[in-house]
Design a protein around this nucleic acid. Sequence first.
RNA 1: GCGCCUGUAGCUCAGCUGGAUAGAGCAACGGACUUCUAAUCCGUAGGUCGCAGGUUCGAAUCCUGCCAGGCGCGCCA
Length: 562
Amino acid sequence: MYKAYHNEMKQKIKNLILQAAERAHQKGELPSSEFPSIDIEEPKLEEHGDFSTNAAMIMASVQRMPPRKIAEAVLRNLDNSEGMISGMEIAGPGFMNFFIHTAFWYPVLREIFEADTRYGFSDLGKGKKVQVEFVSANPTGPLHVGHGRGAAVGDSIGNILSFCGYDVSKEYYINDSGRQIQTLGRSVFLRYKQLFGENIPFPEDCYQGDYIIELAKTIREEKGGGLLECGEDTAIGCAARFAAESIMKGIRNDLEAFGVRFDSWFSEQSLYDSGKVDAVIRDFRNRKIIYESDGAGWFRTTDYGDEKDRVVVRSSGQTTYFASDIAYHQDKFDRGFERIIDVWGADHHGYMPRMKAAIEAGGHDRNQFEVILVQLVNLLRGGVPVAMSTRAGEFVTLSDVIKEVGRDAARFLFLTRHYDSPLDFDLELAKKKTNENPVFYVQYVHARISSIVLKAREKGMENEAEDEAAVAMLKEPEEIRLIKTMARYPEVVRCSVEFMEPHRITFYLMDLAASFHAYYNKHRVLTDEPVLSRGRLYLVSAVKKVIRNGLTLLGVGAPEKM
RNA sequence: GCGCCUGUAGCUCAGCUGGAUAGAGCAACGGACUUCUAAUCCGUAGGUCGCAGGUUCGAAUCCUGCCAGGCGCGCCA
């Protein structure tokens, strides 16, 4: 397994400390031989060194000594014969701070070049099959901005999982069955009738958007007045099928334009057709997990921590949405996924306990099923909220947003917040080409470096070749800072996958970009000194790779020119 | 009423499962282009981490109670 250099350094320091503590104990400087597990962390402030540890404070109670005394004993016995540590100190209440010799940072660059697109990779997933289901919007209308955020988060989480060694499948669940499809058909059919001059009211519980009228017109073009003659039920069914298919096609196009690719599109109806819904209900009935009351079939979800039992079979005999959802998630496990991740809008959070119940009742561990609840998006234009009403059918669609601000800006901005906090998405800001807009700020780094590399090529310089003498020329504080920041990247990716938080990558990239721009403004890469230039070219080429890798995980492009 | 989420600089947000003097960006003010892209950089200023307790060497972070905002509590999806 590929092991990040940064991590190795941490581990090394940890071992040095433990060895030193052991030695101190043998010499009688520390009373106890018991050394609790210690953490090596990276201090926020540069003055506090490259690594630091609270080990002495943790040991204080066991050793029955003041932390600073313990730290003194440890540092006195620390073996730095390798020369990796250029300085150590005891600070504050008992922190031990370590400064790493510059030369020990250089190997990071080589690591980046060797790993290239795989830099930051880890084998955390070990090939485990995991499914990420996201968007899954009903085919009753176009995608809106909220779906866009879900798409950005879900897709990125999928990318990160896959980058970290999981066998990932991204799936879209199509709710092509049930009542809302019926309503869709009715809406379109009524508009259709209106087109033929029938003066009939359009009910409030129908879909209000103009796209319904468009669909009705298309049917008229293709089939003329044929639907008027085949009886209401068949006509509505026909309109529903046509509308759902057509809307789904639009959704697929929007997602394609957004750079989101699904491995599979799963139809709800197929669960009924294959009998899987009936099978699950039968099974749960046999196992007394479903009981009858008031003529309906109730799933005893309270046995699994839900606050009340839920209906799966209505007294009319029809199943609820929940019923097919149970079958659906069952099916996910049947397909061999060991980990199931659903990305939902936060307004569905009340649905989580019953879904967890379904997982457990189906014989699986509730922890195998994870839900990412994405908070809502407030769409703004120049700071002013954009009026949106789904009921009235007035909303800005995802497609509108992509057309206006571009795919990269939209995706990146959706990932500039923890999914858990609501997001203000400002259309004007998304288009701005200043560093108010973090997308271009990060992409600009890539473009700037590309331009340097191009210039260097014209001069006959090669940027990929490793040259120890050249690398050794990197002595400026801004250069070392860049290397250190890049050394942190694998750790960022690891945390990002562990907590399934893509925004960590976003923030990291903004940080790396800031370090680069500062460097760029202060120092020239291509100078009169060939060796120095080669070293710097090597450095910025590494930055270019890390930026590209990070953007790729977010599904954002890394342009050569801007 | 019950449940979930949120509350950090004027604004928008980070804060690595308990660490040191709480960090960015924007807005404000003052500077930097004869240079590899100024879509950039440098500097200044800005805080009772919603409030009150508790846990301990140490709390923005964990626990309890309040306050404010958002969302959810259907034989809807």
